[in-house]
């Protein structure tokens, strides 16, 4: 099996998993740089071309040519580059989702005659989902997938950015909105909204499979369990800072690789 993996720093979990994999591991072309952004890579038909000097340098260090014909692989895997849990939480900086269970008290407060306006206004669940879907549709990954679909029938897998580490709740003076969301019990709803928004955004594109983060890797309903963030590395295979809460390690990468095998095999049949 030959894959091309396109994406940002979260590609490293697959690299680390592959490094540790035994025989029969897929052959992979890595096309990645941290924070891969709009315009840094572009499609010319089915050829993916690096447009950014930093990306070119990264590709050289990965042994990847600056142009890759995606029709020549069994599947293209896009990692990250859509919307993350951080982006999902950012939408809740000043609002609460009225359709979630945690909003019951707010709903009761709002429906009290002559009460003051709510400090955190309500946003409906459809509006929240539509916002997430909109962010995904404007993302670099969605644009590349859409462009690729017009040029090629190669199977596409989309791996959204993993949920943050459970360690995020232990950080001091950081991620206050995330912690507030967790305190209100809204974390699982954020996670399920991310899944739904990704599935809606890529629905209708044939041959595109959106991967869900495997259940066994999820802690507290909306975070990546510590066992799956352990040994997370950079694209250069060097260690991440001790306090990194963004990246997952090879254990999660291995679960995704297993999913990819199944999907690509099924599509081949």
């Amino acid at each position: 099996m030959k894959l091309c993996v396109v994406g940002d720093s979260h590609v490293a979990m697959l690299m680390a998993a592959l490094r540790d994999a035994g025989p029969g591991a897929p052959e992979v072309i890595w096309f990645a740089k941290p924070g891969l952004a709009e315009g840094e890579a572009a499609l010319e038909g089915s050829r993916l071309c690096a447009r950014d000097p930093d990306l070119v340098t990264r590709l050289e260090s990965l042994g990847t040519p600056t142009e890759v014909d995606l029709d020549g692989v069994d599947a293209v895997v896009f990692v990250g580059g859509t919307v993350s849990a951080f982006g999902a939480v950012r939408l809740l900086q000043g609002h609460r989702v009225s359709g979630w269970a945690s909003a019951q008290a707010l709903i009761a407060a709002a429906d009290t005659p002559f009460a003051a306006p709510l400090k955190q206004p309500l946003i409906s669940e459809p509006a929240y989902l539509a916002a997430l879907e909109g962010v995904i549709r404007e993302s670099v990954t969605h644009r590349l997938v859409t462009g690729l679909r017009e040029a090629s029938a190669v199977p596409v897998c989309v791996v959204p950015q993993p949920l943050p580490s459970e360690a995020i709740l232990e950080t001091e003076n950081k991620y206050p909105v995330f912690k507030r969301v967790a305190r209100h019990g809204d974390g699982p709803a954020v996670a399920s909204s991310l899944i739904a928004a990704h599935e809606r955004a890529f629905a209708g594109l044939s041959g595109v499979t959106v991967f869900r983060q495997p259940e066994e890797s999820i802690g507290q309903g909306f975070l990546t369990a510590l066992a799956y963030t352990r040994d997370a590395v950079r694209l250069t295979d060097s260690a991440l800072p001790q306090d990194d809460v963004l990246h997952a390690g090879p254990a999660l990468g291995a679960l995704y690789l297993a999913q990819m095998r199944e999907v690509v095999q099924a599509l081949k049949i």
Partner: peptide, 25 residues
Amino acid sequence: TEPEGLGSEAELRAHRRDHLRRVRA
């Protein structure tokens, strides 16, 4: 303003009331 509607009458009443307070504001 909510093309997909809301999940319950209680939710709708809360949205409406909070909206009216913001109109006043």
